[in-house]
Structures are given as structure tokens and as C-alpha cells.
Design a protein around this nucleic acid. Sequence first.
DNA 1: CGAGAAATTCAACAGTCGCTGAAAACGAGT
DNA 2: ACTCGTTTTCAGCGACTGTTGAATTTCTCG
Lengths: 207, 207
Amino acid sequence: MTSSETAGRRGRRPGDSQTRTAILEAARVRFAHDGFRAATVRAIAADAGVDPALVMHYFGTKQGLFVAAMEFPLDPAQIVPRIVGPGIDGLGERLVRFLLGLVDELGEANPMLALVRSAVGHPDAARMMREFLGEAILDRVAAAVDADRPRLRADLCASQIVGILMARQVLALPELAAADREILIQVYGRTIQRYLTEPLESPAASR
Amino acid sequence: MTSSETAGRRGRRPGDSQTRTAILEAARVRFAHDGFRAATVRAIAADAGVDPALVMHYFGTKQGLFVAAMEFPLDPAQIVPRIVGPGIDGLGERLVRFLLGLVDELGEANPMLALVRSAVGHPDAARMMREFLGEAILDRVAAAVDADRPRLRADLCASQIVGILMARQVLALPELAAADREILIQVYGRTIQRYLTEPLESPAASR
DNA sequence: CGAGAAATTCAACAGTCGCTGAAAACGAGT
DNA sequence: ACTCGTTTTCAGCGACTGTTGAATTTCTCG
């Protein structure tokens, strides 16, 4: 792809340099595909048509590259109001619709998928996932609904959302991947709505 | 731990040999902790108090060790009837109760967690997870319920179950880990019950 | 007791990984 | 034209990985 006649030679290439963003894009794809540990600096550099040392020059360490690549393309302060704004009714459906739309839109370079895949065996990624999905989005959504135990409700939602990502993208469950999106939005939307609004039974009042 | 005076010397140790099962136990713990890729043969051997070469002698390859370690301690043909037997009513709750009980009971050496953690970046593990959770358990449970699209319903259940494992064990969401088990059983149980029995809206009847 | 099978370790090979230091080629300012 | 900072590659180091072949000790059976 990036095999012009100047690439491969030593020293700076002529013209404007977009190698930094090319590295970031390649990193997002690789991290989303393989997770933090299995994605190698060498492979990312090769995808970007660049020497591995250049990656270290720009981002210092592999971890630094990971943090830079996970910088999310969307600001939670903008998306949360769009989900919460129209009111409690249909909240779960809007959240799931937004999530599935995001997955389709981001394609191979999906930071959320990269975080999920990396969280396994890389605690830093698990923390980043908690901070983004939990604190930045779901905690605010749950707080907007005026119900008891908003933090627990946010965690319940997170468990179903992460499960959707794992089942569709990682496990590749066939019926789930092939299912009509509107059906998934309605089914999962009702689940999220329940986790946000339904009364959480106390164990004493068992049924 | 396993530092008797005979260990470390060359050749066979005196007495009965339980090293094979010790290796399997250490492998389950390591695979559950770190996943297939990050768990090293050397670390597993060290935990078992054994030379890495002995692992290869018994199991051939790291993949062979993985397959042997994932041999599940429970037979699906025995557990599925216990869940389905009492009837449709309370099915979801029984399934979730069984799952959470299993997680507590297995402790650190949890093959399900090992499969989830390994599925990322190791397609063989993803296939094993699909075969065990999907085909061996959930497909049968969903088939016992007489509803349309049983395969899709099984996948929906799988997505929530995998999400529970990820959220509690991998992401370690604090409220979810601290929550009362009976509450989780009831909340998740209702979700599973819905996925198994509720009508799946058609996209044409979008309302 | 003697022989073969089993269990166990040692030492090492070949590959990959993240990372480093130096050198080369280019762009921009004076 | 000269200099300086930026971009880029090269070559390599040290650590770690799965795996192997041979050597050593013990057990088992006749």
C-alpha cells in the first residue's frame, strides 16, 4: 500500500508527513483485532508502512501508543444528553441503538472492542474501560433516571453491553451476528430499560 | 511450596506421582488468570513445582495442555435436566443461580473464565466456548422451551452470561462484585427468562 | 537382582518481543 | 548556503517464548 519509491530508504521522506496518524489508525485496527498483548509494535508499524522504531519515537512505549490510539473519537458530554434528553421513555432502546450504530460505523478500528479485547490480561485496559463506559457514560445515564442504586444499575447495563460485544465480535455467535438489528435493539433495549428503571428486589422480600 | 528435598534433582522422584494432576490444576488457574496466550508454560510448570519439559512430555504442546485443562468437571447431560426439569417457570432464575454458584465453587481454577479470557486472540478457545456454553447447554435449554428461533434465544442468553463473567471477573465492576447474590439472581434471571420465552418483535411491527 | 518402562530435569535452539542509539535524509528559517 | 530540528531507517541488545533431545533417577515386573 504505502510503497512509494521513497519508502524503505533511510531518512525523512519528501512531502507532508501523515505517518503519525497512519500509525494510530493501524494501531486501532490491530488492538481491536488482537488485543493489547497480541498486537505487536512490529505488526502495527508494518501496517502503517513504517519502521517499528518510528512508533517508539512518536509514542515512547507500546503503552503510550495504546493510550493515544484509544483517545475516543466521541465526547461523552455530547452523546449522553442525546440519549438522556428525550426522557426516560425509550432510554434503553436509544442507548442500544447508539451502541450498535457505533460498532457498525467504526468498523475495524473500534476502540471499544480494542478495550474489551485488551482488558483480558492487561489491567490498565480494564481500568480504561471502566472509566469510559462506566463513569463517563453509564453512570451519568443511570443518574439521570431517578432510581435507587444508580451505580449498580450502571454496572448491570455494562455487563449486558460488554456481553453483546463479546458475543458478536469475539465469540462470533452465528445467530446473533446474523440477527436483524431492529430485533436486537428492541430486545436488548428492553433489558437496559429494565436495568435502569425496574425495582431491584430485596432478598428478604423474595417474591 | 512443592520443595521437598527430592524435587530439583534429576530423574524420577520417589513415591506416587501426582505431578500430572498438579500441572493440570496449575494450568487451570493460570489460564483462568491470564488467558491462553499470556499464561506461559514456564509459569504453569513453576506453579506445579516441575520442569517445563515435563509439561510437554505429558501434553505434547501448550495447546494440548489447554484442551486437557479445559475438560469440564461437569457433564452437560446431567446439569441441563436439573435446570430444565422443573418446568418453564423459574427457568432463568435456576440457570443464573447455577452459573453464579459454579463460579463461586470453582474459585481460581475456573475453566469457563479461562475460556472467556482465552477466546480473545485465540480462535480455538472461542470455538470451545461456543461448543460448550452454546451447543452443549443453552441450545438444549432453549430447545426445551417451545418458542420460535431457539438458536437466537440461546445466543441472547450467552451474550448476557458472558457479559456477567466479563463484568465481574475481568472488568471487576465494583458494585456488581459487591452486590447481593440473590438480587443478581433475580435481575439476571428475569433477563434470561425473557430471552428464552418472550416474543421477539418483528422489525415490520416496529412500535 | 536385573531390565525395561516411566518420570523427571538439564541445557539449549530458534524465534519473537519491546526497546535503544546512532546515522541518514528532508524541511524550514536565517 | 548553512544550520538546526524533525522524520525516518538500520542494526542490534536482552529478555522471554514454546519446544526438543539427551541424560538421570525411580518404579515395576519377572
